[in-house]
Computed example of a mutant assay.
Amino acid sequence: MRLSRFFNSWRAAALSAPFLATGLTCASAAGNYEFLAAPQTDLNRVFRLDKATGEVGACQYGLKEGTQIGVTLCYPPGEGAKAGAFSDYALVASRHTGEGGVFRVDLRSGMMSICFVLNESSVVCTPPAK
């Protein structure tokens, strides 16, 4: 009786192992992005940051002629905003209510750059500085 319980427990653990491993993989992949609204009070733009690579994009609501719902306008990463060296990045908004950009900070090195949408086409970031 004891031996069969041991084998049943071992069998259950072996059968559930792939699911547990998958769950751990999914959990470790969660939380890769950070989102922050631009501080400009009359702008409905939200910036998206890949916290590991520093890549920055942005989206906002826009009106589409002839529709009542509107569209989501997204701006891809452009110069200085594309994926860079792996680190630990974050977004910080200034308290300036007229500022349409955000700061991208490297929490490991202390380097900062300012990211904003340029010519309604892409997100660009200044060269990092301390």
Score class of each variant (00 low, 15 high):
15 L>M: 13
118 L>S: 14
94 S>M: 02
79 E>I: 01
49 L>R: 04
57 G>I: 06
95 R>I: 01
76 P>T: 07
42 D>K: 09
39 P>Y: 05
8 N>T: 07
82 K>W: 00
122 S>L: 07
124 V>Q: 13
62 G>Q: 07
100 G>L: 10
10 W>K: 08
75 Y>G: 03
99 E>L: 06
34 E>W: 07
4 S>H: 10
95 R>D: 14
117 V>D: 01
19 F>Y: 15
37 A>R: 15
122 S>Q: 10
122 S>T: 05
116 F>Q: 08
5 R>W: 02
10 W>V: 14
15 L>F: 13
114 I>S: 09
55 E>Q: 14
114 I>R: 13
56 V>Q: 02
67 T>F: 03
103 F>N: 11
51 K>L: 06
40 Q>V: 09
88 D>V: 12
17 A>S: 11
72 T>H: 01
10 W>L: 15
15 L>Y: 13
14 A>F: 11
115 C>V: 01
64 K>A: 13
93 A>Y: 03
130 K>Q: 13
68 Q>W: 07
124 V>E: 14
113 S>H: 00
41 T>Y: 05
85 A>V: 15
34 E>R: 08
84 G>T: 03
20 L>C: 05
34 E>C: 08
75 Y>A: 06
80 G>Y: 04
117 V>S: 05
108 R>N: 12
114 I>E: 10
89 Y>L: 05
54 G>K: 10
82 K>A: 14
13 A>Q: 11
103 F>T: 14
83 A>L: 00
86 F>S: 15
45 R>H: 00
53 T>N: 02
12 A>T: 10
62 G>M: 03
86 F>L: 15
127 P>V: 01
50 D>E: 13
35 F>T: 06
31 G>A: 05
52 A>P: 02
107 L>M: 12
76 P>R: 09
129 A>D: 02
111 M>I: 01
108 R>S: 02
13 A>F: 13
103 F>E: 08
116 F>T: 10
65 E>H: 04
118 L>W: 11
70 G>M: 05
124 V>I: 13
101 G>Y: 05
2 R>P: 02
21 A>H: 00
3 L>E: 14
71 V>M: 13
78 G>M: 03
126 T>M: 03
79 E>T: 14
50 D>N: 15
6 F>A: 14
97 T>Y: 08
42 D>W: 12
40 Q>T: 06
85 A>I: 09
6 F>H: 11
124 V>R: 11
48 R>Q: 15
120 E>M: 09
26 C>V: 15
41 T>S: 15
33 Y>W: 06
